[in-house]
Amino acid sequence: MAGERPAGAPKQVRKSCRKEDCLKVLGRAFDLSPSIMALKDLQRLRYVHVNESFLRVIGYRREEIIGRTAEELGIWSGQSKVIDILLKKDAAKSMEIIFRTRSGEERSGLMSMERMQLDGREYILTVTNDITEQRRLEKELQRLDRLNLVGQLASAFGHEIRNPLQTVRGFLQILQRKAQYRDDDEYFALMISELDRANQIITEYLTLSRKKADCFARNNVNEVVQKLAPLLEALAINVNKQIRFDLAPVPDIWMDEKQIRQLILNLLNNGLEAMAPRQVITIRTGVTGNRVILSVEDEFHHSGDDIRSAGLLAVVLHFDKPG
């Protein structure tokens, strides 16, 4: 019949808009796209046009970009390899790149490029999706996975360590009861106390208690130091250092004894590491105004221009005396 399309003939599609109108629509899509988009001259690789997302992410003004290359701006230095691909395939898709913003921040992007012709000239259209946050989240998940693995291993080790600790504690109690060790009862009590503290730390870790309850009671800082004294002296002697105690009379105060013991040990170890052999570290207590003060001081060690320590390691505790 007249007017019918012959079988197999290509279907004619009515144009939906004029060429000028289509170009305007495409231009608006280019400018409004959330992706980082740019148009470059293929011959000179200079930017001809960039969209608002490009300006926002990269941080340059439009007039600072147009007519310059990515290398000149320091944005991206790997485009020469991609150009070689474009000359062969006309397109390169989903390449992961590292680009830099004006501030020098490095960000991750997933870039696609296509070679195209406009008005007889060749250009490169680049579309880049910023995947920096995605990569950061992936790294964070990997870190958490590693931490989870470390936690599982540490938990297993913790259970294994507690058994020999209990064995050692039991034998110390047996030896403590023997007559020949009666004069060393103070040392046995200290060793058992430290084993109990180590076991408590392991228990707290295994139970993953994020918020440990403080155990405050009235106590005397000097008594805490004196209980630790044999252990502190042994630590100092072991590294060929000396320790001195300068304990002035102080009143009882409210404290968590376990935390204070750990704090003293930590500060002592820091001081011993900074000092030269045969130097002296001093643990001093005293009262200033309405406060009880505990301090740890080490000696200067000069080695050429190197000063390993500056005398007073820390004034670590200020306690209000009970009214």
Rank of each mutant, 00 (worst) to 15 (best):
G8Q: 11
A9H: 11
A9S: 14
P10I: 06
K15N: 12
K15G: 11
S16T: 12
D21H: 00
L23F: 10
L26Y: 12
L26Q: 09
G27T: 12
A29E: 10
F30N: 02
D31F: 13
I36G: 05
M37T: 06
A38F: 06
L42N: 06
Q43S: 10
Q43D: 09
R44H: 15
N51H: 03
E52Y: 07
R56T: 02
V57Q: 06
I58P: 01
R62L: 14
E63I: 08
E64K: 13
I65E: 03
L73N: 05
S80G: 11
S80I: 11
I85F: 10
I85L: 10
L86T: 09
K89F: 06
K89P: 00
A91K: 09
A92R: 05
A92I: 02
E96S: 04
R102V: 03
S108G: 05
G109M: 14
S112W: 07
E114Y: 03
R115V: 07
Y123D: 02
T126S: 11
T132N: 13
Q134V: 14
R136V: 07
R136D: 10
L141N: 05
L141T: 04
R143K: 08
L144N: 08
N148E: 15
L149W: 04
V150G: 02
G151C: 13
G151R: 15
G158P: 02
H159D: 08
R162S: 10
P164A: 07
Q166K: 11
F171T: 11
R177W: 03
K178H: 14
D185W: 05
F188T: 05
M191T: 03
R197E: 06
A198R: 08
N199L: 13
Q200W: 08
I201L: 13
T203V: 11
E204W: 10
Y205K: 15
L208P: 00
R210K: 13
D214Q: 10
C215F: 04
N219S: 14
N219Y: 12
N220L: 11
E223M: 12
V224G: 00
A229D: 02
L232M: 12
V239A: 03
K241A: 05
F245D: 00
L247F: 02
D252K: 13
M255R: 08
M255W: 09
Q262V: 08
I264G: 01
G271L: 00
L272H: 10
E273P: 01
Q279G: 03
V280D: 01
I283F: 05
T285W: 06
G289D: 15
L294V: 01
L294W: 04
S295Y: 00
V296W: 03
V296I: 12
F300K: 10
D306V: 13
L313I: 14
L313N: 12
V315A: 01
L317Q: 00
H318T: 14
